[in-house]
Design a protein around this nucleic acid. Structure first.
Lengths: 221, 221
DNA sequence: ACGAAGTCTGTGACGCTGTCCAAGAGAGCA
DNA sequence: TGCTCTCTTGGACAGCGTCACAGACTTCGT
């Protein structure tokens, strides 16, 4: 009965996995800023140093959190008739997964861990690219280009709901005087785009430019 | 002789502009992390509180820095035969300007000030879009999509040279096992793409999908 | 010429952060 | 019982942004 949970509950039953889950929950529920070592320790009813013992310092904590969270993102099945469509579908999965838990994404993005966060989905995209006939350096470059654009849209979406109103891009651009600019455009710039649909059309174009059209499904092999 | 420099050198000849320039230089020369209030004050030979007096708190300092730096970015003339080409040229200007002073870009990007940083160039892009016949909400959406992709590439480039080797994306992806993946692709994933050329081809595709081809230069008007 | 008003500067503190040393408590084994 | 290994803790350290307060200097009104 005391043997079952491995050998790690010597004192307080604290283990790395539980710390990570609690950290993820804390960031998701109360924002990325709420995730401090002390706050997380308090949440666990433990001294700060215990986190260091089990997980390591803050950077290691964030890395492990993002990795763990990223594994869950890759569980959704990929749908689509052609490989080309499935490439786009994976892009959409990255996008949706990132926005579903924005605070984790924010944490990952501000610490250069986005690649780690989406690594499994990127691998899935590499597989779909291969099935579409894109391999080797072309696959590497296609993957890079697509994920760069996806990442850009994610950052844009994160900024849209976290920025103080006075330097959102809508206000920034609208407050810039330009006599030559069409008044229709000018007033449109003060409103915000519908990012999900913009994401779809833009990434469609990017994927189409990088992945050849379906040559009855056997261009390579 | 003492009247010439306006009326602002009451005590130490300190003024907002000088503080901002020094802050920009400090960030550029010694990295974004070196820019602390105390460090900047020491650099200026002044107490920290003086910065608060002239510029404001850290967020206001960063905002003013980014704004000032962004104005200089917009001084480069825009070249290109068709309006469509000039849209791409502006995108390239944003990209190159951002990478020329990476530390400032890093500062802007990590504080949600990227729109502010590139605001003048974005306005220039709006003008070129208008000349290409894209106005109103279409212009707003095109601008948004293009800048999102540009931003994504910029973030990707910043990460490439600032990340510890062990969780760069090349290592991250290469260390992921997948039996079904083509060995050529697998080894290519361990190398890094040439971002500048990838940027060009990708943004070419994005712009082409959003901006109609040149209808002998007078589609609108 | 003298004092009041306004403008700028410096001192020093507050609460917060990540980090870690050194000491202790508990379990298992001899 | 005592030794060892694993885990937990308290408390400190240096650094950060921020600001209340008091002092110094200039300018102006009288």
């Amino acid at each position: 009965m005391a043997e079952t949970r491995s050998r790690s509950n010597r004192h307080a039953g604290l283990e790395a996995g539980g710390i990570l889950d609690r950290a993820i929950a804390l960031a998701r529920d109360e924002g990325a800023d709420a995730l401090t070592m002390r706050r997380l320790a308090a949440e666990l009813g433990v001294a700060t140093t215990s986190i260091y013992w089990h997980v390591g310092n803050r950077e290691q904590l964030l890395t492990a959190m993002v990795q763990r969270h990223g594994e869950r993102l890759a569980e959704t099945p990929i749908t689509g008739d052609t490989a080309r469509e499935r490439v786009l579908a994976v892009a959409r999965l990255i996008w949706e997964g990132a926005l579903a838990d924005r605070e984790i994404t924010r944490l990952a993005s501000s610490h250069g861990l986005s690649s780690l966060h989406a690594q499994h989905l990127e691998l899935a995209m590499a597989r779909e690219l291969q099935e579409a006939g894109v391999v080797g350096e072309s696959a590497r470059d296609a993957l890079r280009a697509i994920t760069a654009c996806v990442g850009g849209f994610i950052v844009a979406a994160l900024l849209d709901d976290a920025l103080p109103t006075d330097h959102r891009r809508t206000s920034v651009l609208a407050h810039l005087e330009d006599p030559g600019l069409d008044p229709t455009t000018r007033s449109a710039l003060a409103t915000s785009s519908h990012l999900p649909s913009l994401f779809d059309t833009t990434l469609q174009a990017v994927v189409d430019s990088l992945v050849p059209a379906d040559l009855s499904a056997n261009a390579y092999l």
